[in-house]
Design a binder for these strands. Sequence first.
DNA 1: GAAGGAAGGCTGACGTGTCAACAACAGGGT
DNA 2: ACCCTGTTGTTGACACGTCAGCCTTCCTTC
Lengths: 156, 156
Amino acid sequence: MSDPRWLDERESRAWRGYQNLRRDLDSTLERRLSRDSGLSAADYQLLVVLSETEGQRLRARELRNEVRWDRSRLAHQVRRMEQRGLLLRTECETDARGTMVELTPEGRRAIEEAAPPHVEAVRNYFIDLLTPEELDVLTSIAERVRAKVGDEGCDE
Amino acid sequence: MSDPRWLDERESRAWRGYQNLRRDLDSTLERRLSRDSGLSAADYQLLVVLSETEGQRLRARELRNEVRWDRSRLAHQVRRMEQRGLLLRTECETDARGTMVELTPEGRRAIEEAAPPHVEAVRNYFIDLLTPEELDVLTSIAERVRAKVGDEGCDE
DNA sequence: GAAGGAAGGCTGACGTGTCAACAACAGGGT
DNA sequence: ACCCTGTTGTTGACACGTCAGCCTTCCTTC
């Protein structure tokens, strides 16, 4: 424990690169999204899932499953978005514990307006900068990491 | 604007992969760091920079330059860490506007204790899962994105 | 040396994310 | 019918990040 295998030159560059990538890309995309449509990344993610769902409504548990958040994060986010009129909560008929989350017309309008420029930005600042091979490498890396953390961190 | 180039199958997989990677990896590493040493990722980053600095102290402006945060984020973070005794603020002799940020012995102890298990975790959940070629691809991608966002987002 | 703008840093307000604790309900076994 | 356990969702407290606005100090220009 007192003498771990420190990162060598190559590893260190890659690790710093990842951290920079995360900082630069995410902050740029979120800033643009917020400026263009007044939505946060969290707003956007929930709206996308709901708008792609048959009936524009989903039980909170399923919604959580889609975005892989924990309970309280979703509860807070949904409460805030409900106050802004983007979605609304109703009771679940089949399970009195459950809560249904439903897209409002205003929420639908918001995501339809926000999506095109956001996708353009994702292309501009990221996807279009990568070769097809690099896209596949990234996909593969993500799957490996996911499998690794899935092993141990098995929270729900 | 009403008809952007949507992402195709391959691009979409890679983009979702990146988002999953970011979520899984960062949350795992931060949770472990916090559990093992009581430090947040932000704490860790500042402590690393200061501990690698000659004299264990840096002007706030330089510190900001290292971690690439904005003014207010650094000010808030330094205030919180000062309250916990990890570092302290003094006046800058050469510029009355400036503030010097200095590592305390307690802060030094904290980072020396936190670093080994954190590096092990970075290896375990990320670096050791990648081939040398993949490490280089990642570095290269990060540089391209950095150059792209640096073009336009030229804040300070 | 006085004026104006630029740079450095701080603060308050607000949205976001995490943690622990809680209340309500479901389902099974007795 | 009744407890017991696990699930579901909510809340409050707190740390974190961003934005806008503020004050002080520096520096240039006149």
